[in-house]
Design a protein around this nucleic acid. Structure first.
Lengths: 176, 176
DNA sequence: TCAGCTTAGGTGACATGTCAACCTCGGTGG
DNA sequence: CCACCGAGGTTGACATGTCACCTAAGCTGA
């Protein structure tokens, strides 16, 4: 099992590099065409699909799988640019609704066109429907696996035990 | 054909999300176990494979596909932490060799174990050799496609380091 | 009703990434 | 020899992401 893993790791690495280049390319195209960052786009995209262009911050965080502070900072910046608004939430006084301003809606719509064009040209045409379907399946497998791994090991201790067989319980060098 | 594209775009999106979660997970595991960021790891990993643990900054930039300022900042930070050293380059007085310190080499080796374990557990075991090979093939297709697209679109040259420095044309609305 | 826990969200400090301006060295044509 | 241009790298300002901590509002049980 460990014997075959070397080439498998190499495959993973090659894939990983290609993916990074692809996403960098997509981001650059979007930024050049619309002046929006990838993060901006994710938020606008999510809100465009929400009824009334409005979504609870909590829900947005769930959809995007972002940390709450990341969302908070990002929304703050975009609100300052006039793309979003914050309105207090009816159901829960702790929460906030994030809303699209008219400018935000327009910018988002334009960004969607750009992104759609990019993806079609660089991904869909390169892969074709069959390979794309394969890819989606693979993604589903990975998601499922991730869920299981994260569940059984929330503190990620296994990876650490492998690297430090002698000391398995101290919290390690201060992260970052 | 455009009719089918909607579901294809959705597939792309699902895949994209899964990938983001996966890389986030891998980074977190690495950071928790070793205190190294993904960027730290990339550099250490590259240098571990270089003869003498030493590589020209130029070459490192090529291998990692990083902007030169990004490399410079990152190396500066890692040097401050005692993981890397900078030595003037014999062949070209403008250049620098980036070198692994003993601590850097050790940290890198540990990080490799951690990462290898993570990838094996979350990716290789989830996909199996066949699906992984598929994935590598798909990655190769995407890389090839990207290369073509970047070539026919002159404003995407930023991706390809500074192969062709020249005035950039109108960049659209002010980025960011 | 009120103490004590949990949850939604924000804040500030700091790490990282990007852009543009800058410095220095190497090569080249006069 | 030197004026000049282009390449390798650094720097500083700023955008973005993360972590730890803070506040306030909901919830639960005695």
């Amino acid at each position: 099992m460990t014997a075959t893993t070397a080439s498998e790791l190499a495959a993973w690495r090659a894939y990983s590099t290609a993916h990074d280049q692809l996403t960098a390319h997509l981001s650059r195209e979007l930024a050049r065409a619309t002046g929006l960052s990838e993060a901006d786009y994710r938020i606008l995209d999510a809100l465009l699909d929400a009824p009334g262009g409005r979504m609870r911050a909590l829900e947005l965080r769930w959809v995007l799988q972002w940390e709450k502070s990341r969302l908070s900072h990002q929304v703050g910046r975009m609100a300052r640019r006039g793309l979003l608004g914050r309105e207090s939430c009816a159901e829960d006084a702790r929460g906030w609704d994030i809303t699209l301003t008219p400018e935000g809606r327009e910018a988002g719509a334009r960004a969607r066109l750009v992104r759609e064009h990019s993806v079609r040209r660089t991904v869909l045409e390169a892969l074709g429907p069959d390979r794309l379907a394969q890819l989606a399946e693979t993604a589903a497998l990975l998601s499922a696996r991730l869920e299981r791994v994260a569940e059984e090991d929330p503190s990620c201790r296994a990876a650490r035990a492998e690297a430090f067989p002698e000391a398995s319980e101290d919290p390690g060098p201060s992260p970052r």
